[in-house]
């Protein structure tokens, strides 16, 4: 009986997480003219945050915050978890000097947040709304909930304006857009790709309406969509039919998973031994690639998207001239 209770708790958490996807990305900024330096910011939940001065100490509960601050030339005052912060493209060795917020991804330690004397905390939609009450009026909480790569771009602009880094934001966005456009134009014949995570039986996929899926769709044939708008990763409550995957028969699989030891069989070998997965073109041609989960699944910002774009292009079209 307890197990059902546990299951229902999980259902509620995931449904809430899924619901958060339906919110519009409406981050807004309003810096009043004249002497009053009031900064207003509206997060993806529609909550208005008001600052009397530009926030300087930003705490990140989600990776898109770390990613976006990096684009703006800022360093987070504190981060939760061991996400992209220590990745070489982000803060690398410097990450060790960034204070960490304890607790878990779903329940960050509020005492740690207060201890860092933060001006602003940025959390993920569907996960971190519940700590708003605990933070009270002391520390504003901004909830970001990107649904597509365009939302990630919009977040850079919104945060850039709020943190008085408009020029850096503008430059980062322009650089991303130009690079993206260049890569799109390089593609002559789109291959069919699939981004999945998990195992052969328990797996989830990124659909066209996910942050990464919406971007990959521009450089590859990415036919994975659902009617309910579930973008994958943020909810996990839906699983695509294996028959549909077989029907579309992807040329290449990007797999977000843990790495096996050198002696262990690779994921493509494991899938090849499965009678159904083994029939896929990608598995037959050994075009199954394990990618960095931190960047591909958790990053969500335009820095991560740039890395994903480059890695995907390299794997999708290895013979393409640069």
């Amino acid at each position: 009986m307890m197990n059902r209770n546990l299951f229902f708790c999980l259902c509620i958490a995931i449904v809430l997480s899924a619901c958060s996807n339906s919110t519009t990305n409406n981050a807004e900024f309003d810096r009043a003219d004249g002497e009053d330096e009031t900064v207003k910011l509206i997060d993806d939940m529609g909550t208005e945050l008001v600052f009397n001065s530009t926030p300087e100490r930003i705490g990140c509960l989600t990776e898109i915050c770390v990613d976006t601050l990096k684009q703006l030339g800022l360093t987070p005052a504190a981060v939760a978890g061991d996400g992209i912060t220590s990745e070489p493209e982000f803060f690398g060795n410097e990450a060790t000097s960034i204070p960490t917020i304890g607790g878990s991804f779903f329940e960050p330690n509020v005492e740690d947040i207060f201890l860092q004397e933060l001006d602003l905390v940025i959390g993920l939609g569907g996960v971190h709304e519940n700590i708003r009450e605990a933070l009270g009026d002391k520390i504003p909480l901004y909830i970001v909930s990107p649904e597509t790569y365009e939302d990630s771009i919009q977040f850079v602009m919104a945060l850039g304006q709020a943190l008085d880094k408009e020029a850096e934001a503008e430059q980062a966005v322009q650089s991303f857009k130009t690079h993206f456009e260049t890569q799109i134009n390089r593609v002559t014949e789109k291959r069919t790709a699939l981004i999945m995570y998990g195992s052969d039986t328990n797996f989830g996929i990124d659909t066209q309406t996910s942050v990464v899926g919406s971007m990959i769709k521009k450089i590859a044939n990415y036919p994975w969509k659902t009617d309910n708008g579930d973008g994958g990763h943020s909810s996990g409550s839906a699983q695509l039919s294996l028959e549909e995957i077989l029907k579309q028969d992807p040329d290449i699989l990007f797999v977000e998973t843990f790495r096996f030891g050198d002696d262990s069989p690779s994921l493509s070998e494991q899938l090849a031994s499965n009678p159904v997965w083994g029939e896929l073109k990608a598995v037959k041609t050994d075009d199954v690639h394990e990618v960095r989960t931190n960047i591909w699944a958790n990053g969500r910002g335009i820095g991560s998207l740039t890395i994903i774009l480059d890695e995907a292009m390299e794997l999708l079209y290895p013979d393409l001239e640069s």
Partner: peptide
């Protein structure tokens, strides 16, 4: 579950819900 991340919890959901998929 409290120690997990959203992707892992999503996968665990498939298992804990009870599924015959795949």
């Amino acid at each position: 579950i409290a120690l997990g991340k959203e992707n892992q919890i999503g996968l665990l959901f498939f298992y804990l819900a009870g599924s015959l998929s795949a």
